[in-house]
Design a protein around this nucleic acid. Structure first.
Lengths: 197, 197
DNA sequence: TTCGAATGAGACATTCATGTCTCATGTGGG
DNA sequence: CCCACATGAGACATGAATGTCTCATTCGAA
């Protein structure tokens, strides 16, 4: 029995397959299992051995996306310092997962009645809490609900990922253009905004 | 030969079918031709007689969405008055088409290499021009490109339509929450913002 | 009333993605 | 060296959506 070889090889490949699938489905959300397999450099049979089906693959990608998102939330230390700075850190940390997030964001809208991954609610709760903290802080305006701000953040991340993918803007501008729009809006400010880090 | 009856009945039904399809696909973007037909109260055969196939239906919806969007742009009088007020008018006018727009927005990302409807470029150009005018005006900040502001507006409209559809926020708040976020951002302003109409 | 056109219902073939299976190959560990 | 196991290749069946067809019915206009 090859415990070592088994768990090692499987784990590595699974991770690699997942990454490839994420990269591909980010660009073409309707990609075939065949295309996914080819993109990962494996055969369709092997792909099916690792993920029972397309559903299982998407679920695994969902878990991956949620995990990366939660890791980003952790790294952003949402409850430290100014709420606006926390938002900046959050967007910066979540940027690598933006493409995957955009894919899952639109994919989730197809799930209709089916129960969705509980992880999303946790993420919603944490991000909403950040916006609420900023409101109680006096930093954020109170006439926009935390729920809307959270959803808008998702939408902007998806739009940002899409616009970077199509080459309309440079990847390096991703965090700035999202945070600046979300926090400051399009209107020009007379007072200079302060910066962090 | 019943010229009158023909053109009249066909036109009316086509419009009605298009509306029903838009309403359905807004909620369930993967709906079957069967479901579309049922939602319109006609048979699948008749649906196929009016639209050669699913492709043709989506193309027709695309044209409808673009037409409604351009009508909204016209009604908003983008080049009159303050640019920020024009944005407010635009969002208010485009609100009825938001669901359809959201559907088309995600649908367009699947078109990969295929050439897309030229109408989108026209819309992009007109909206970009509005933001550019606001920048040259001194109203809008210049460190966010018109292209990004345009794309962000699309994203926020889609997010807004989605969040209204799921009941997280009231439909009546749709225009305000989008314009306020897009223009003013989440940060609280010391100076009171002025209002229009 | 009668004729013609549009419709609805449904059968049918086709295409495509998916899921399952078998078998040959190759590789790594014992 | 040998064996177990993962893999790749491909055949095969399945299901779903689509597109096309026919035929009976209904509705409107002459």
């Amino acid at each position: 029995m090859s415990h070592v070889g088994y768990s090692c090889l499987m784990a590595v490949d699974r991770e690699h397959v997942l990454r490839s699938a994420a990269a591909l489905l980010t660009r073409k959300s309707t990609a075939t299992m065949d295309e996914v397999a080819k993109a990962a450099g494996i055969s369709r049979a092997t792909l099916h051995r690792q993920f029972a089906g397309r559903d299982a693959l998407v679920r695994a990608l969902e878990s991956l996306g949620i995990a990366e998102c939660e890791a980003a939330l952790d790294a952003a230390r949402l409850d430290e310092g100014a709420a606006s700075d926390a938002v900046r850190r959050l967007v910066r940390e979540v940027e690598p997962a933006a493409g995957l997030l955009a894919f899952l964001y639109t994919e989730n809208q197809l799930f209709e009645g089916e129960e969705q991954h509980a992880g999303w609610e946790r993420l919603d709760a944490r991000i909403s809490a950040l916006f609420r903290r900023g409101q109680e802080n006096g930093e954020f305006r109170i006439d926009l609900t935390p729920a809307w701000l959270t959803e808008a953040l998702y939408g902007l991340i998806a739009s940002g990922a899409w616009v970077v993918l199509t080459g309309k803007v440079a990847r390096k501008d991703f965090p700035r253009m999202i945070t600046e729009l979300l926090l400051g809006g399009a209107l020009r400010r007379d007072e200079p905004r302060r910066e962090e880090s």
